[in-house]
Amino acid sequence: MAKHGRYLLRDSRFKPFEDTLEEYGLSPIVASSVNTLQINMGAACNMSCAHCHVEADPVGPDGPDKDEQMGRDVLEQSLRVIDTFKIRTVDITGGAPEMNPNYRWFLKECSAQGLCIITRTNLSVLLEDGYEDMAAFFAARKVEVVASLPYYTSTVTDRVRGAGAFDRSIKALKLLNDLGYGKPGTGLSLSLLYNPAGAYVSPSQGAIEADFRRRLKEDYDIYFTNLFTLINMPVGRFFTFLERSGNLEQYINRLIDSFNPEAASNAMCKDLISVGWDGTLYDCDFNQMMFLKCAVEYPTIWDFDLKALEGRRIVVGLHCYACMAGAGSSCGGETSKKN
């Protein structure tokens, strides 16, 4: 993804992440297993969010990312890996992964294998022409939906995701609710993903979830299963914002000051592999955007070596402070009870 990759791995202004790990006796971070294959199907998206670490945006047929959509060959090999190594969870992300032409086919195949399927959606894509039946497609296969929603008001959400994004998100959530998503007893899980609308860290997951639940119910009669909090990663578009707004130093120092060793022990990279559009393997989606490949001899989906990957040393840098701050941060929300 040639246009991506704005980040800091090391910088003399900040205490190196490796030094902090050493201080707590946590160095190096080593993977323990591979329970989840997280598949980034490409950066194409119908939105252009201010915090996006992928720097995804709408692309036309000649757009810069047109060749960076995951192809059928990578997906077929991913299915073989999942089957061979008995990986039970596939976590699909992008961009807007729904826009990849192979998306529906891949979900059908995962469903046929009886996998736990998580798909990450920006919600508004579910209302776009040609995608109106996507929510029902999810429901028919009991796909777990994780939906980005930075806040429960339009003012904040639109500031992060563009004008009109909140109203479209609410429409899409109603569509999902009407299918049974987010309602007890349906088996259809709808999780919301909160991220701060600026250069500050997230509130406690429990506290903000209660606010979301009350406000979305009272204002829009919307239900959801869980809310996950995510701390914005100083990578990509959010990194550019931090630099441009003069917030970079205070933000990184805030993350460093909030370092929580328990969150480091529970980091998501310890049991997840991230697959890039071309089949390259990474420790997480953030490392993928920074081109930091897994530290194994052949980090590709075609050379998937479970034994080597399970014991691999995670590639770290300053950005990793974001996953270890406060109660921790991951694609599945907090990773620690301690703040």
Partner: peptide, 9 residues
Amino acid sequence: SLENGADAA
């Protein structure tokens, strides 16, 4: 306040 989830309102 921001870190605890408050908004401008």
